[in-house]
């Protein structure tokens, strides 16, 4: 049985070797396109039998990126990203939610790992399709194991912009997807909100984000899925937590997972144990000894469980 697996793996590796170079370039284009291209439009986010619609504007001006996302249905949601900082609408005001201090590293890191992706995902150019009236190249990144999800992405043929993206489980069920229904690219993009004066006054930097401290915590994960490497290891303050929380981020270049380790609180820990999900994100929590472990990532349930169960303190 095992030889059959190897044989399949081997032939599939050979099979896509020839076409991988073209897909390669697509992925590099994608990593840049999201940042360097002006666009505005409406997109649909579908997950867990729910559909939500949003309007996005993304403008690149004088070496700085502006991005605004607002909800078009349901409760009011608004996200503004500017220069690596993110604000969300909460309780009738805009609150800074993420400082993105490590943010600048990521585009380059992603690119470094594009070659590795070919050993973890079977990359195929599957079709050319239209999305929101634009011609796109459809690329399937099929996971070679069941510890990560497969991805199907629709890239604008001219700019490489991501116009549609679906995350698929091993049975090819769509766990979540983004899809533009209406889009303007380049000079046609809607810049109106940039000019409006209320944008700046609405931004309330009310949460002073404490520095993320790079550390060597001594915590390790023994059963990390193949291809996942440590991206960052930090100590951070979190809301409603007394003690700082250790966070270790791992990525395979496409998906990522975070491991959080903190001393247990006095309040009801029972409530915190278990598995939960939203779209492609799974979260698993468990109290082990004197610590609360939390593993969260865009990976299958079995992966967050496997990772949590193999956390151990190795020491410095």
């Amino acid at each position: 049985m095992k030889w059959l697996l190897y044989a399949c793996l081997f032939t599939s590796l050979n099979g896509y070797a020839a076409e991988s170079s073209t897909s390669h370039d697509w992925l590099k284009t994608l990593a840049f396109a999201g940042h360097g291209t002006d666009f505005s439009g409406d997109f649909v986010y579908q997950h867990d039998n729910q559909v939500e619609t949003f309007r996005i504007s993304h403008i690149v001006a004088s070496d700085s990126e502006y991005e605004k996302v607002i909800s078009l249905d349901g409760p009011k949601q608004e996200i503004i990203r500017h220069h690596g900082q993110t604000w969300c609408y909460r309780n009738h005001k805009m609150v800074q939610v993420a400082s993105q201090q490590g943010y600048a590293k990521f585009p380059s890191r992603l690119l470094e790992n594009v070659s590795d992706l070919n050993t973890l995902y079977r990359v195929q150019e599957v079709a050319k399709e239209q999305v929101a009236g634009y011609l796109t190249q459809v690329i399937l990144l099929q996971s070679v194991d069941n510890l990560r999800y497969s991805h199907k992405i629709w890239l604008h043929s001219e700019t490489g912009l991501l116009l549609k993206a679906a995350v698929l489980d091993e049975k090819k069920n769509v766990l979540e997807q983004y899809l533009f229904t209406q889009l303007k690219i380049g000079a046609a993009a809607d810049r109106a909100w940039l000019a409006s004066p209320q944008v700046d006054s609405k931004i309330v930097a009310s949460i002073k984000t404490p520095a993320l401290l790079d550390i060597k915590s001594g915590w390790v994960v023994d059963a990390l899925p193949t291809g996942f490497v440590k991206v960052q290891e930090i100590k951070r303050a979190m809301t409603k937590k007394h003690a700082p929380v250790t966070q270790i981020v791992y990525s395979d270049g496409l998906s990522a997972l975070s491991v959080f380790i903190e001393p247990t609180d006095d309040d009801d820990e029972d409530d915190k144990e278990g598995l939960s999900s939203r779209g492609s994100v799974n979260l698993y929590q468990k109290v082990v000894g004197l610590h609360l472990y939390t593993v969260v990532g865009e990976v299958p349930a079995r992966t967050v469980m496997q990772v949590l169960d193999s956390i151990r303190f190795k020491g410095n």
């Binding site: 994608l30 990593a31 999201g34 997109f43 986010y45 949003f54 996005i56 993304h58 991005e67 605004k68 996302v69 996200i79 503004i80 990203r81 993110t86 969300c88 939610v97 993420a98 400082s99 993105q100 490590g102 943010y103 990521f106 585009p107 890191r109 992603l110 991501l162 993206a165 983004y178 991206v231 960052q232 930090i234 951070r236 979190m238 929380v245 966070q247 981020v249 990525s251 270049g253 496409l254 998906s255 990522a256 997972l257 975070s258 959080f260 939203r278 994100v281 979260l283 939390t294 969260v296 990532g297 865009e298």
Partner: peptide, 20 residues
């Protein structure tokens, strides 16, 4: 935890604000 994860997750970078 989700926010903390997305802040540092490389995939947020590709998806941009949509990830949030």
């Amino acid at each position: 935890y989700l926010l903390a994860h997305q802040e540092l997750s490389p995939s947020s970078d590709v998806q941009g604000g949509s990830a949030f």
